[in-house]
Design a protein around this nucleic acid. Structure first.
Length: 502
RNA sequence: CGGGGUGUAGCGUAGCCCGGUAUCGCGCCACAUUUGGGAUGUGGAGGUCGUAGGUUCGAAUCCUGCCACCCCGACCA
């Protein structure tokens, strides 16, 4: 009895994580650190992305980068530092970012004579440099030199970079002071073309979210309140997490001529007329890691979509002697070779320092989609035990044709977790026609609430203050429907999606 | 940035009220027995008690500043 209790306790303390029901945000934090994705650094608000987590990000980058290239974009790199004066050129842009900028004021340190390193006050910068919170200003200042004629357009550039936004409250991946992202910045001859670009990239993001992350998203536009600082229109993809809170997973902005005017970027058109250039910008960040984690994972740990899993298949040998391990290894090595030829990432974990049960638990925690276990019994029968992470089902399969069986299974898992998330998302969109219902749904069910809104920022603001819910978006394919605003009773032509959000 | 909480070995903690140099579990190292769902036994290593001051003969413990993290607000990808 005592032994049993000791054992239970140990499991809880060594690897067990808080359940989602118990405390969702603690579950998230523990998952991120215990699955070796990231940890807090000694710098306030900044994280260390660990190798396993970074591998996932690299896979996201590779997939997105290809999609950008396939839509005609090329990569470039702009400076980390932005002169303060650039920043103040676009009024609403400054206003949006002013409160969260890191500023470089000096360029040298010195020894104060008693062994302390201090800032050399004499090495003060003429003009302070802002650590980029986003790069529109430095990029549009640069584009001025690149653009004279309609022949120079469009410019379709993307950059992979880090940015800094001095956040008050941070959470690993979801909101950190420094984060990694990509930002596309395009320049166009016409408004129509720029809008088309902004919409195109939104759909690229949506495709990526659904086909790679296996996270269904709502495509929509933001209300003026939620719009990017300096944008005319902000398009977004909104995802739903398992706790019923929404997460903005990507944004694409039609910037109009705002930045072209602020940085005096003009071109001569075919007709010989001088006009300001039209702009877009679009970005997704390491926040997608948060979306990925919160959309699929369970109380046993991470659940990764096969397309983004650093290790797609793990093979665990079960043996009693070195001789047995040798025989298993022969079969496993052949399988590894076969899977690699199919471009499937596989790991044969023949570590002798951990027992099989430990490995099972470890790979479940890390979200490896498929696990193959092979022991003496399997060698005799020509079989292997296959366990899938998403459903935690196990079955015994013939070694004959195993590789293609696994290949199919990976596809099935990718589809299954998407369908599961899609069902949850669809079940979590609830219509509300009164303010009472609206509040009740938010408190009891969560998710998106589809409701009529009178279209004014004041109403949106009041609802936000009273319920903590914001308008996540006005869906692009929204059906028109006459109704009255849930708060004011004013007439409304369509429902919008409200939710509490990350 | 405001309110609340926490900080003791790699991790989780006891001790703090009532001052006397730190408890337990996991993990780690060695050896043996084990290996189809987080092994067991024996032996061993590991701590400037977040940090800087102060009070005191003596501080993990009392006082003050600072830092970090967690929760709740305001802000945001």
């Amino acid at each position: 009895m005592l032994k049993l209790r000791k054992k239970t306790l140990k499991i809880i303390m060594s690897k067990g994580i808080t359940s989602r029901n118990e405390d969702y945000s603690q579950w998230y934090n523990e998952l991120v650190t215990k699955a070796d994705l990231a940890e807090h650094s000694s710098v306030r608000g900044c994280m260390v992305i660990k190798p396993y987590g970074y591998s996932i990000w690299e896979k996201m980058q590779a997939a997105l980068d290809k999609m950008f290239k396939d839509t005609g974009h090329t990569n470039a790199y702009f400076p980390l530092f932005i002169p303060k004066s650039f920043f103040s050129k676009e009024a609403s842009h400054v206003e949006g970012f002013a409160t969260e900028c890191a500023v470089v004021t000096h360029y040298r340190l010195k020894n104060d004579g008693s062994g302390n390193i201090i800032v050399d006050e004499e090495a003060k910068l003429e003009e302070e440099l802002i650590v980029r919170p986003t790069s529109e200003t430095i990029i549009w200042n640069t584009y001025r030199g690149w653009i004279q004629s309609y022949r120079d357009l469009p410019i379709l550039v993307n950059q992979w970079a880090n940015v800094v936004r001095w956040e008050m409250r941070t959470r690993l991946f979801l909101r950190t002071a420094e984060f990694l992202w990509q930002e596309g910045h395009t320049a166009h001859a016409t408004s129509e073309e720029a809008i088309e670009e902004a919409e195109k990239m939104l759909h690229v993001y949506a495709d990526f979210a659904e086909n790679w992350l296996a996270v269904p998203v709502v495509r929509g536009v933001k209300t003026p309140n939620e719009r990017f600082a300096g944008a005319i229109e902000t398009y977004c993809i909104e995802a739903l997490m398992q706790d019923g809170k929404a997460l903005q997973a990507g944004t694409s902005h039609f910037l109009g001529q705002n930045f072209a005017k602020a940085f005096d970027v003009k071109f001569t058109s075919k007709e010989g007329k001088l006009d300001h250039v039209w702009a877009t910008s679009w970005g997704v960040s390491t926040r997608l890691m948060g979306a990925l984690i919160m959309a699929h994972s369970d109380d046993q740990g991470l659940v990764l979509p096969p397309k983004l899993a650093p290790i797609q298949v793990v093979i665990v040998p079960i043996y009693k002697s070195a001789e047995e391990l040798n025989r298993i290894s022969e079969v496993a090595d052949a399988l590894v070779k076969e899977l690699k030829a199919m471009d499937i990432s596989v790991k044969f974990d023949d570590r002798d320092t951990q027992r099989p049960g430990f490995k099972f638990a470890e790979y479940e925690l890390k979200g490896v989609p498929v696990r193959v276990a092979m022991g003496a019994r399997d060698l005799e029968n020509g079989t292997a035990e296959i366990a899938r992470r998403d459903t935690r089902e196990k079955q015994t399969v013939n070694q004959e044709g195993l590789a293609s069986y696994i290949e199919n299974l990976l596809g099935e898992i990718q589809e299954n977790i998407y369908q599961k998330a899609l069902k949850f998302r669809n079940d979590s969109i609830t219509k509300a026609d009164t303010y009472e219902d609206f509040k009740k749904i938010l408190d009891e069910k969560g998710g998106f609430v589809s409701a009529h809104w009178d279209g004014t920022p004041e109403t949106e603001q009041r609802i936000k203050e009273e319920t903590k819910a914001t308008i996540r978006c006005i869906p692009l394919d929204n059906a028109l429907e006459d109704g009255v605003c849930i708060l004011t009773g004013q007439p409304s032509k369509q429902r919008v999606l409200f939710a509490r959000a990350y």
